[in-house]
Amino acid sequence: MREIVFDTETTGLDPKTGDRLVEIGCVELMGRIPTGEVFHAYYNPQRDMPSAAEEVHGLSSAFLADKPLFADGADALLEFLGDAPLVAHNAGFDFGFLNNELALCGREPIALDRMVDTVAIARKKHPGAKASLDALCTRYGIDRSHRVKHGALLDAELLAQVYLELLGGRQIGLVLDAEVEAVGASGTAITMQTIERVFRAPRPHTASEEELARHKAFLEGIADPLWNNGR
């Protein structure tokens, strides 16, 4: 099954009041294993960047000024997303901004039944515990030391690891294929080949006439055998 884990950065908290999406990062999973395929883009929001938002993600108006408009990159993004389920942390927020941008450029919204919210999964699995991305990385021992500020692709990569842990950890499923490709701890692809077993025909094990005669002679040579005590 193909899934996309994604994250967004924005100019604020509410697209209904004019806030815009400025960055999106997507990570592809296939059978709950990262494939290494990603999508990452910055967008010019055509408005100023509030200082509070810039403090979170570090994206300034000057940096975004020469970036494409969302409308200009919508086709490439939608092609990457395909019809896969979309996994996000506090997914309603990200879906709200993504669908707002699609509406502004005359595109159909992404159906909410494709939404997978890792906050909801975390709260169900760890009731009462903190469910932030940082807290879950700490719980599962996921290194986030390189996360100085929020970044859509970096956060999507961290969330992909968290998502797999929330679902039970990284396990390679039982398969019947002759070859399986997985991703190791170092992030490199590992190819494992199943061993083809050669089964030999069962060997005959019935005693020969000579062996039966020798066995009978041996038994007859035992003085007062235990199996005769019941006579």
Rank of each mutant, 00 (worst) to 15 (best):
F70C: 08
F70G: 04
F70K: 05
A71I: 00
D72S: 13
D72E: 10
G73E: 10
A74I: 03
A74G: 02
A76S: 15
L77M: 11
L77D: 08
L78V: 03
D83L: 02
A84D: 09
A84G: 11
P85C: 02
L86S: 09
L86H: 05
A88C: 14
H89T: 03
N90E: 04
N90Y: 09
G92K: 15
G92H: 15
D94W: 09
G96A: 15
G96M: 10
G96Y: 09
L98Y: 07
L98E: 03
L98M: 15
N99S: 13
E101Q: 14
L102H: 10
C105R: 10
G106W: 00
G106M: 01
G106K: 03
R107W: 00
E108T: 05
E108Y: 00
P109I: 06
P109R: 13
P109F: 13
P109A: 07
I110K: 03
A111R: 12
L112D: 14
D113H: 14
R114Y: 09
R114V: 12
R114P: 10
R114I: 06
R114G: 07
M115A: 11
M115V: 06
M115N: 06
V116Q: 01
V116D: 01
V116L: 03
V116S: 02
T118E: 06
A120G: 08
A120K: 11
A120N: 06
A122C: 05
A122T: 02
R123F: 05
R123S: 11
K124C: 05
K124W: 02
K125G: 00
H126C: 01
H126G: 01
P127H: 07
P127K: 09
P127V: 07
G128L: 13
